Simulated assay, not measured.
Amino acid sequence: MLHHVELWVRDLERARERWGWLLGALGWEPYHEWGAGRSWRAGKTYLVIEESPALRPGTGHDRMRPGMNHLAFHAPDRGTVDALATGAAAHGWAVLFPERHPHAGGAEHYAVYLEDADGFEVEVVAT
């Protein structure tokens, strides 16, 4: 069981809006809030976004470099995947592989792949 994931972001408020929308749509609940961060929880697992004062200057996250490529979440059903794809642009996310959506992962895989302007990618899979 995964305990938690912590993502460092350059703009906490922008990330809070984007991740809050996405995680809320997947049934995650707000968990903690402090000056430099926010977290959401699903069961015993939680996700943190933080604008850490220890963040090094640089170009930001690049999912195409060594390191984490994306996070994958369960969706309760295909309707949730479809709603996320439809609402993504209004909440700061772009649908990746739109020409192959919702089967970009294969014919038996029903999912939406999203990327935000900070380069974070998520995959949401209907279970």
Rank of each mutant, 00 (worst) to 15 (best):
residue 3 H to N: 09
residue 4 H to I: 01
residue 6 E to K: 06
residue 6 E to H: 04
residue 7 L to F: 04
residue 8 W to C: 04
residue 11 D to I: 00
residue 12 L to C: 06
residue 14 R to Q: 08
residue 15 A to K: 00
residue 21 W to G: 01
residue 23 L to Q: 02
residue 23 L to N: 01
residue 25 A to I: 07
residue 26 L to Y: 12
residue 26 L to P: 05
residue 27 G to T: 02
residue 27 G to K: 02
residue 27 G to R: 02
residue 32 H to Q: 13
residue 34 W to Y: 12
residue 35 G to I: 03
residue 36 A to R: 08
residue 38 R to Y: 09
residue 39 S to R: 00
residue 39 S to T: 03
residue 40 W to Q: 00
residue 42 A to L: 06
residue 44 K to R: 13
residue 45 T to N: 04
residue 45 T to K: 09
residue 45 T to F: 07
residue 46 Y to H: 15
residue 46 Y to S: 07
residue 47 L to I: 02
residue 47 L to C: 01
residue 51 E to K: 03
residue 57 P to N: 07
residue 58 G to F: 12
residue 61 H to N: 10
residue 62 D to T: 15
residue 63 R to Q: 07
residue 65 R to W: 13
residue 67 G to S: 13
residue 68 M to D: 08
residue 72 A to H: 13
residue 74 H to R: 13
residue 74 H to V: 14
residue 75 A to F: 00
residue 77 D to E: 14
residue 78 R to M: 11
residue 80 T to D: 02
residue 83 A to Y: 04
residue 83 A to I: 06
residue 84 L to T: 07
residue 85 A to I: 08
residue 86 T to W: 14
residue 87 G to S: 13
residue 88 A to I: 05
residue 88 A to S: 07
residue 88 A to Q: 04
residue 90 A to Q: 09
residue 90 A to N: 08
residue 94 A to F: 09
residue 95 V to Q: 02
residue 100 R to M: 06
residue 102 P to W: 07
residue 106 G to L: 14
residue 108 E to P: 14
residue 110 Y to P: 01
residue 113 Y to P: 00
residue 114 L to A: 15
residue 115 E to H: 15
residue 115 E to L: 15
residue 116 D to T: 14
residue 120 F to D: 02
residue 123 E to V: 11
residue 123 E to A: 12
residue 123 E to K: 14
residue 124 V to H: 00
residue 124 V to C: 03
residue 125 V to H: 14
residue 125 V to K: 14
residue 127 T to H: 13
